[in-house]
């Protein structure tokens, strides 16, 4: 009887959801530890177009393999924590110790441009990842996230969430220095 089946619907829906929950628990994954798989692996292949109207080139895998240490930062104008870490990236870019590269994650070009215009642009290159494809390849679980890439184009460090001054002092800068030697 179709009417009777209607009353079963909530239970069936819950069964499906519970199935997902069970998978989530049983499949031995850790939602907090996305990155480990990519550490010491070459950065994924990508080729992102530049941000329209910004006088910086786009970003591709080849740009990470030119023998210099690089910091790749995923950001978005709609992301509040990105704003919190932004002054630190500006300082880092100013200090000149590392190339700071940006990837605009699921952002409208005009919003990203206005954002960089307002707060300053620390990025030597900015790639636009409007579909989020490259971010997924990098294992980005949300913005902001920051990667340190060594001279050979390998990912050496992934930072999830906004950078704090202590992260930069204690982790990022020492790592960059050791990689640059």
């Amino acid at each position: 009887m179709p009417r009777r089946a209607l009353y079963l619907l909530p239970l069936l829906l819950f069964a499906v959801i519970a199935g997902y929950f069970l998978w989530g628990l049983a499949s031995d994954r850790n939602p907090n530890l996305v990155p480990s798989a990519l550490i010491d692996k070459p950065a994924p292949a990508f080729d992102l177009p530049p941000l329209e109207g910004l006088d910086r080139p786009g970003l591709a895998t080849a740009d990470l393999q030119n023998g210099e240490v690089a910091l790749v930062n995923f950001f978005a104008s709609w992301c509040l924590p990105c704003r919190a870490e932004h002054p630190l990236l500006m300082d880092l870019a100013e200090s000149g110790g590392v190339r700071v590269l940006g990837i605009a994650y699921r952002d409208k070009p005009e919003d990203a441009r206005r954002w960089l215009g307002q707060y300053g642009n620390p990025y030597e290159r900015v790639g636009v990842d409007d579909r989020g494809r490259t971010s997924i390849d990098f294992g980005v679980s949300g913005v902001p996230e920051t990667f340190v890439i060594d001279r050979g184009g390998r990912i050496r460090y992934q930072h999830i969430g906004p950078l704090m001054a202590s992260d930069i002092e204690d982790k990022i800068v020492p790592l960059i220095e050791s990689l640059s030697e």
């Binding site: 997902y20 929950f21 998978w23 989530g24 499949s27 994954r29 996305v34 978005a76 709609w78 992301c79 699921r106 989020g132 997924i136 294992g139 980005v140 679980s141 949300g142 913005v143």
Partner: peptide, 17 residues
């Protein structure tokens, strides 16, 4: 994000937009 990952998709996050 959980549903997608379970279906063999990638890890994603769903944000304010």
């Amino acid at each position: 994000p959980l549903f997608l990952e379970a279906l063999g998709g990638d890890k994603v996050s769903v944000g304010a937009p």
